[in-house]
Design a protein around this nucleic acid. Structure first.
Lengths: 137, 137, 137, 137
DNA sequence: GTGGTCTAGACCACA
DNA sequence: GTGGTCTAGACCACG
């Protein structure tokens, strides 16, 4: 079945990046599983109503990141082994990013409470977008 | 006087936006005070080693946001009345920062749920630090 | 009997070429002997879990190179006379392998000069090993 | 000045890859130096007589490999810090690749001497190609 | 002027 | 049918 993704043409985020982000998000959250076949480039182009090359670019990006694996003539698949940062390193990275984020917002006079609220709002919006999408076209 | 600003050429954030952000940040934090004169576009272009048009674009943005005020032939000044940095501008910045943060963590294979957990943990730790004395940042 | 061949889906080398190379390799090294019957295309397709057409293409290539010989309704056999594997075929293979090798080292930031030096060093070591007895690989 | 590169349309190697390979080769061999500006995508497209998008693809590949660095509106530059594998690791990698290469050729009944000859021939051809090119168009 | 993105449409290699 | 490459040409953001 097609993706539940609707491209946002007014956000300024390039289509190809929205597709990349959506697939990464889906892999992280177990919506797409290792080995699973992605839609063909042509099919997804039709579904999302964008040019074929835009999908090609998105899939290429994902291949560069080792998130998907392409076999010519066969299709594109979620990679069996996801490039997982080893656990302790991941935890460090997470801590650093979060710490940096809190520093940044505080330098703009924004409270942590406000930031958490905004984060939850954005996450919620993204989920809603994904649920909503797919019924168009 | 020159700014203490170093442009980051590898972050992907456009120069003009880095300049805008820096000046807003400085106003919020009292580093630049209402009525204070900003460097001329030419001077700042030389200091930051960027194209003149880049500074022009940054100053225009700031003028558009009513954060600075340009007097023909005299220069550019921080506006006497900072209308709503606390409202619309801060909210925009907050949204941008949060969105960027979510992008970043997802590119490291970290889920939003994990990040929120870590943020809350860090916030909690900081609070505890403050109560205990907070001298060791 | 089935081949001891595992197709590598991540190498970028097309399946049909991997099969061709494997059979040529087997003929050169006496694993497959002149007149010996190859698996049917159907059987090999099942064994290697690839599309039937992939085997057809591989066998065609081999037939074109006069390495195998197909008898309608009977099967495919290693040709009785291996005409010039030692000449044109070997030369092609040599060129391919060398070209691939140079690509690989350059993608690791290694210059051709360095590689040639290392090759000569290894060759020299192997010769010395052989003279001393050669029992340790 | 333009590159001394002539695209080979009959080799089967995609244009964009020939360009990537050429630039990597040039960086490794000090022909292009860190910080040096590459031709604009439009200029190179004219010089090599290929479509602009082909150059864009080549430069993108190089950016993915962290070999070049792009600043929108300014141009594309050889990265200041080349992604250098640390020295001991590089040496190990080199040894492994060479060893593997020698094993491979010997399994095809090719002698090391033949391989070295072919390698030198290919290297020589590549150099000649680069020298020859650029005078056309 | 510089790169970034997108469209429309074509031809080729592989399964 | 599947992805890979390439062309021609357009519009946008940045410097």
């Amino acid at each position: 079945m097609a993706f539940s993704l609707k491209l946002n043409s007014s956000s300024g985020v390039p289509y190809y990046k929205q597709i990349v982000d959506y697939i990464i998000y889906s892999v992280i959250n177990g919506i797409l599983k290792p080995g699973e076949k992605l839609p063909t480039v042509r099919q997804l182009a039709v579904d999302l109503q964008v040019n074929l090359n835009t999908i090609v670019k998105a899939y290429s990006e994902l291949e560069h990141k080792s998130i998907v694996h392409t076999q010519q003539g066969t299709g594109t698949f979620i990679a069996e082994t996801q490039p997982d940062i080893d656990n302790s390193e991941k935890k460090n990275k997470l801590h650093d990013l979060c710490s940096l984020f809190l520093d940044e917002i505080s330098s703009f006079g924004i409270s942590a409470r406000e930031a958490l609220g905004m984060l939850e709002k954005i996450i919620h919006e993204k989920r809603a977008d994904k649920k909503r999408g797919g019924s168009h076209a």
